[in-house]
Structure formats: C-alpha cells, structure tokens
C-alpha cells in the first residue's frame, strides 16, 4: 500500500487535483439522470456477475486440482487427456467456447425427448447454466496448468517425510501436498481470479443479464454511450481491487 507521504509529492497533488476536477466535470456535465431508473436492474446485474464469478471459480478450482494432479503424477492415460483438455481450453477463445456450449448444446438437447421431460429441463432452457459451465471449464483449464506446476513444486522431502510417518496417501495429500501447493500458487490464483472477473461480461452475449448487459441495455435504450461504460469500468475496477485486496489478506493470513 502506498503511504500518505508518497502521495504528498507536489506532482501527485497536482495530478490528484486534475483528476478531482475531471470527476467533478464528469458529474456535472455528463448525463446521469438514467441512474435512478436503472439502479435496481444494475444491482441485480452486479449480483449476477458476482455469483457467476464465485461459483465458476470455486467449481473450476475443484476441477483444476485433479487436472493438475493428473498432469503432475498421473499415469499416461490420465495425464494425456488432462493435458489435451488444458491445451484446447487455453488455445481457443472463451467466447467461442461459450457459444459452442450455448448454441450447440442448446440446439442438441431439445432433440431428445427424455431430456425435455426431465426435471432439469426448466434449467437447461435458460442461459446461465451454459455460462457457468463454460466459465468453470475455462477456469479449470487455466488453473489445471497452474496447479500442475504447483504440485510438482512442493519439495519432495516433505512428501517423503509424510510417507515415512506412515501417513495414508489421501491424508498426505490433504495435509501436506495440497496446502503447500495452494499456498505457493496463491498470488497466481489472485491474478487468475481477476482474469476470470474480466471474462464474465462475455456471458452477456448469451442473454445472461449481468452488469455488463445492463450497461448495454442503458446504451441501447437511451443512446447514452459513454456514461454507462465509464461507470461500468469503474465497477470492474473496484471489484478487481477488492479481489486483489482479499488475496493479499489470504497470503498474509
């Protein structure tokens, strides 16, 4: 964190004044009268963004652990599929993956009567399951690669020590291997989570109403271009800052 003293240099004070003037100018001369009307929708959109981010990072991480493990120590019939999965996910644009799942699966499912009759059908007709699935797979693909490095980075002596204590393999994994791997990889995970946040607006292209979709709707309803976009950028900046702060806490704690 920058201290107050570092901010109190003459050129920074001037820059802050210019910035403050810019903010005041934005507040006064740009149009913000649409905010009250769209505020409830924007809050809903914000909530959608945040829960999609949280759910997909959580599930993605759960999937990344076996992917990383398979690549680090798995036999070839596990490591090759895991590596292929990571390469494909990392080698193609997320937008394409989202559209493949949404339009592809979305056009495939209705052809099977037993899917249409199942209890899952009301969910499968909506867009968000595909959004969550695509984002989860994407996060798992990137994180699987990171976890591979993390698992192979844990010192061998630690694992040998655990083994010589007669620890069962699963306990060893749970108590020694995973915690150390996760700790080593926390700074990277923070960065990857911010990347995931930046990927969430893509779900707006398949009709999920997140905060980005709300700003697009404001733009198309009122023809106000810059104000919603600036506010949107600010919202993402704040969320990214909060994620960075949270991970710094984790690392120290």
């Amino acid at each position: 964190m920058t201290s107050v003293k570092a901010l109190m240099q003459p050129h920074r004070i001037v820059m802050m004044l210019i910035f403050a003037a810019l903010v005041v100018w934005c507040a006064l001369s740009l149009r913000w009268d649409w905010i009250p009307q769209y505020a409830p929708l924007a809050l809903e959109g914000l909530w959608t963004t945040i829960w999609i981010l949280a759910v997909s990072t959580f599930l993605g991480f759960l999937l990344a652990v076996p992917l990383g493990l398979a690549q680090a120590i798995g036999p070839w019939y596990l490591s090759i599929p895991a590596r292929t999965f990571c390469t494909i996910i990392r080698g193609t644009p997320l937008l394409l993956q989202i559209w493949l799942l949404y339009y592809g699966l979305g056009s495939l499912f209705p052809q099977f009567p037993w899917i249409r009759g199942s209890e899952l059908w009301p969910y499968l007709r909506q867009a968000w399951p595909y959004a969550v699935l695509a984002l989860t797979l994407s996060y798992a693909g990137y994180e699987g690669e990171v976890m591979r490095g993390a698992f192979s980075g844990v010192a061998k002596g630690q694992l040998e020590a655990a083994k010589s204590f007669g620890m069962p393999r699963f306990t060893m994994f749970r108590r020694i291997w995973l915690p150390q791997a996760v700790r080593n990889v926390l700074p990277t995970l923070g960065g990857e989570t911010i990347l995931q946040l930046k990927a969430t607006p893509l779900v707006a292209t398949i009709t999920v109403v997140d905060i980005y979709a709300v700003s697009s709707r404001v733009r198309s309803d009122t023809f106000i271009v810059y104000e919603p976009l600036l506010l949107l950028a600010l919202v993402y900046l704040v969320i990214a800052g909060l994620i960075a702060l949270a991970f710094r806490r984790f690392e120290q704690g």
Binding site: L197, L229, A240
Partner: peptide
Amino acid sequence: RAVPELVLILI
C-alpha cells in the same frame, strides 16, 4: 489490466 477487454473495446 483491471477492466474487462470487452468494456475497453467498446469504450
């Protein structure tokens, strides 16, 4: 680096 590319692209 903190704002989504999609938003930057639009702006």
